[in-house]
Design a protein around this nucleic acid. Structure first.
Length: 423
RNA sequence: GGAGAGAUGGCAGAGUGGUCUAUUGCGGUAGUCUUGAAAACUACUGAGUGUAACAGCUCCGGGGGUUCGAAUCCCUCUCUCUCCGCCA
């Protein structure tokens, strides 16, 4: 959520920069500023009334104590009028606050100055590429055929148990999942991230804290009887660890990582282009999360991007890094890099990671702050990135490394799989 | 699931209707003393809102109520602990 005082003091800048996200925010911003002025006026009136009431109450107490009951009774009559007014103002204040909040919550984060203008993914900016696009042999197959050929994953069984998009991993397919998870977690902890194993169901407050609610309610699976949500990413529980927390400036940056299954309804997103592992309702992911000092967060974003790139190099996958344009960025992000690997048989780039700086957008909702030696607590910056999401990595590994003898496992993974070839 | 107890500042823990602008201890910060440190002593030490700065206002788990006045009384929700039951 954007900070009110920032909007108030930088109105034109906010409107201009939100336009990069293709949003004409002038009307909303005007509305926010007006509602806010209105609200503050009401608050002011209410405060002075309460002040009056407090003073009267003290006087009455004093009179009662000294036995001057008639005088006390007289003052009591005065308070009745004030109480009536207080009630009215309180009701007005609540309405005004709700209205303001409703408008404010719908405003996306302001994009960083580096964010390119644009509406579609085609307008994302490629900032880096690595590796050669592999030339496959004549009989090369897309991963969904390789999966069947080597008996790695059973989608039919998944349909039987849950539905489309819930794969059942088998044999070396299951082992490969476990290997990737361990590989990613080992690398993350070696890079200084503390491993977390969070709940994979979260309450409403957590969904709100990281920005999934109220914006994307329909994307999450909801367990109605208990009013809990299945997490769409480990970002939600791990970032929410720091909800309502004030940390010492010296403890920043805080680096956490965690493996969880992720659940996404992907309502209406089904079609031929999401075949195989390209899009699922349940998938595995290792996530990295940082809580950073505002002065350091962009430096840290680059560091996180480099970290993820390093993983892709180790996996020997060709990849490119995109700086997302305004139109392709998420609601809460100020700057996002997408990492895409090339999946050679599909001849497609697949997004396997998204690394973002949210600046204070999440921490404002979370009330996640840090304290310097001097001065008041201030909002920290939050960042996160996938490191990495498994299914599309598996797709690319299978497709790019296939040959007549089988599928080669990259060297870095062999200690984790225990085999170097799927045949 | 049943019965009981409880939720107060970074932590511990007082406070059952009126300077509570919340006792006290620990922790933290600064100072005095000291060659330096420790100890001792002194002062300061929650958050939000608001203001040019003060003032003011709000917050004792959440929400509602009684009262001139609520941490304190009432209702309700959530959570925690203890015992019993069940159980990987």
């Amino acid at each position: 959520m954007l900070q009110l005082h920032y909007i108030r003091e930088n109105k034109e800048e906010v409107i201009t920069r939100l336009a990069v996200k293709n949003l004409d925010a002038r009307v909303s911003i005007d509305q926010v500023i007006e509602l806010d002025a209105h609200r503050r006026k009401t608050q002011n009136e209410l405060d002075s009334l309460l002040n009056e009431a407090n003073i009267l109450a003290k006087q009455i107490g004093e009179l009662m104590k000294t036995g001057k009951k008639p005088e006390a009774e007289e003052l009591k009559l005065k308070t009745a009028v004030i109480k009536e007014q207080v009630k009215e103002l309180e009701a007005a204040l609540k309405t005004q606050e709700d209205e303001l909040n409703k408008t404010l919550v719908l405003l996306p984060n302001i994009p960083n100055k580096q964010v390119p203008k644009g509406k579609t993914p085609e307008e994302n900016e490629t900032v880096f590429s690595y590796g050669e696009i592999p030339h496959l042999y004549e009989q090369a197959q897309p991963h969904w055929d390789l999966i069947t050929k080597y008996d790695l994953i059973d989608f039919e069984l998944g349909v039987k148990l849950a539905g489309a998009g819930f794969p059942v991993y088998k044999n070396k397919g299951a082992r490969l999942q476990r290997a990737l998870i361990n590989f990613f977690l080992d690398r993350a902890t070696a890079a200084g991230y503390m491993e977390i194993q969070p709940p994979i169901l979260v309450n409403e407050a957590s969904g709100y804290g990281t920005g999934q609610l109220p914006d994307k309610e329909g994307q999450m699976y909801h367990v109605g009887v208990d009013n809990l949500y299945l997490i769409p990413t480990a970002e939600v529980p791990i970032t929410n660890l720091y909800r309502d927390v004030i940390v010492k400036a010296g403890d920043l940056p805080i680096k956490n990582c965690g493996y969880t299954p992720c659940f996404r309804r992907e309502a209406g997103a089904w079609g031929a282009h999401v075949r195989g592992l390209n899009r699922l309702h349940q998938f595995d992911k290792v996530e990295i999360v940082q809580v950073a000092h505002p002065d350091k967060s962009y430096e840290i974003l680059e560091e996180m991007r480099e970290y993820v790139a390093g993983l892709l190099r180790e996996l020997e996958l060709p990849f490119r890094i995109l700086r997302l344009c305004g139109g392709d960025m998420s609601f809460a992000s100020a700057l996002t890099y997408d990492m895409e690997v090339y999946s050679a048989a599909q001849k497609r780039w697949l997004e396997v990671s998204s690394v973002s700086n949210f600046e204070t957008f999440q921490s404002n909702r979370l009330k996640l702050r840090f304290r310097e030696a001097e001065g008041k607590p201030q909002l920290a910056h939050t960042l996160n990135g996938s490191a990495l999401a498994l299914p599309r990595i598996v797709a690319a590994l299978l497709e790019n490394n296939q040959s007549a003898v089988g599928i080669r496992i990259p060297k870095a993974l062999v200690p984790y799989t225990g085999f170097d070839l799927i045949s």
